[in-house]
């Protein structure tokens, strides 16, 4: 056991990824053994269709967590971005065919960016805790959205949205492709750029980052702007999946995104955690949910399984973390 631990330590962050892949393989094997008809194309396709909207929101949660913060407004920020895009498309581009898609995407991304930017500015320059700021933003957005839509929905997007929400390319669901691109982009930002490095440093020890010449304020604004853009993308994807948008769609995802980040080894106090383990952890959660659905288990039990899974992984991880100190 000791040598195993030491091997994992040497692997460093790659070890986390290997471990998460191991967990994913284990859960696939488990459900392959106990859930009837699990090894089938449609099952994996169904999982690949379901994962991305939650996955994008989890990415949007991940970046602030690495910086030592949290973004509680991810779901409502996605709703508002989707609403603005849907409103514009509905008003001007219903018959514009495929043109409506890039326009909607641009509106969604920029409104998500604007919301994130606002959170970032307040966190960085007012110095309020991100939980308070993003909670305030979440309530503000929900209130504004409910007021503007009167609790109703905007629906009836051009057909091109359905090809994004339900189409496949070479058998791979389009939402999954969108998600994988977002994962790659986030992984690149976090792992290969000096901005990404700054985010890890700020999350680890803000004071040390400040003294080593990192512009902490600018980094925080960047963190929440990136997070906001990812929620904008999630909002557009939800719009494409549901052909409709309403304030409150997907609000059950909020806590799950935080769960996924911690499951993937993101440190609740910031500074540590990698993007790829997160993507793999999300897949494990989806395998558990779909596997239990396939067996006809209660959804409440599936939620319980998620919770048990998180606690289990935390317990397994604890000795490794202690070794790192």
């Amino acid at each position: 056991m000791r040598t195993l631990l030491q091997q994992f330590r040497r692997l460093g962050s790659a070890g986390e990824l290997v471990a998460m892949v191991g967990v994913l393989v284990a859960s696939i094997l488990l459900f392959g053994a106990i859930a009837p008809g699990f090894y089938a194309g449609p099952v994996f396709s169904s999982m690949a269709f379901q994962l991305p909207e939650l996955g994008l929101l989890a990415l949007a949660m991940f970046v602030p967590i690495i910086s030592g913060g949290l973004n509680l407004s991810v779901t409502y920020s996605a709703n508002i971005s989707g609403l603005l895009a849907a409103f514009f498309v509905k008003a001007f581009l219903v018959h514009a065919g495929w043109v409506s898609l890039p326009v909607a995407l641009a509106i969604g991304l920029s409104s998500g960016l604007a919301i994130g930017f606002a959170i970032g500015i307040i966190v960085a320059y007012v110095g309020a805790h991100p939980i308070l700021v993003s909670l305030g933003m979440m309530i503000l957005l929900r209130g504004l959205g409910e007021w503007a839509t009167r609790g109703g929905d905007i629906s009836g997007m051009p057909d091109v949205f359905a090809t994004i929400g339900y189409g496949t390319v070479l058998g791979v669901p389009v939402p999954m492709i969108v998600f994988l691109i977002a994962v790659a982009a986030t992984a690149y930002l976090m792992g290969r750029t000096k901005e990404g490095f700054a985010i890890y440093m700020v999350g680890s020890t803000p004071a040390a980052a400040e003294y080593s010449g990192i512009d902490v304020k600018k980094t925080l604004v960047l963190v929440y702007s990136v997070s906001g853009m990812l929620t904008g993308l999630a909002g557009i994807l939800m719009l494409a999946r549901f052909n409709s948008v309403r304030v409150g769609h997907g609000d059950s995802y909020l806590l799950i995104t935080i769960l996924a980040c911690f499951l993937a080894g993101a440190n609740p106090f910031g500074g540590f955690g990698k993007v790829l383990p997160l993507a793999v952890a999300l897949m494990s959660l989806q395998v558990i949910a779909s596997g239990m659905n396939l067996m006809g288990a209660s959804q409440h039990l599936a939620t319980a399984a998620w919770g048990a899974f998180l606690i289990l992984i935390m317990a397994i991880r604890a000795p490794f973390l202690r070794q790192n100190k």
């Binding site: 008809g37 449609p42 379901q50 549901f242 769609h249 997907g250 659905n293 959804q299």
Partner: peptide, 25 residues
């Protein structure tokens, strides 16, 4: 015959449940 009861009244969860039912044929 069985029922799938999502854990909250979020319609996004109903979409997921239906996806799984389709996969289950």
């Amino acid at each position: 015959a069985f029922m799938v009861g999502p854990t909250s009244a979020d319609p996004a969860l109903q979409v997921r449940a239906i996806e799984d039912l389709i996969a289950r044929k």
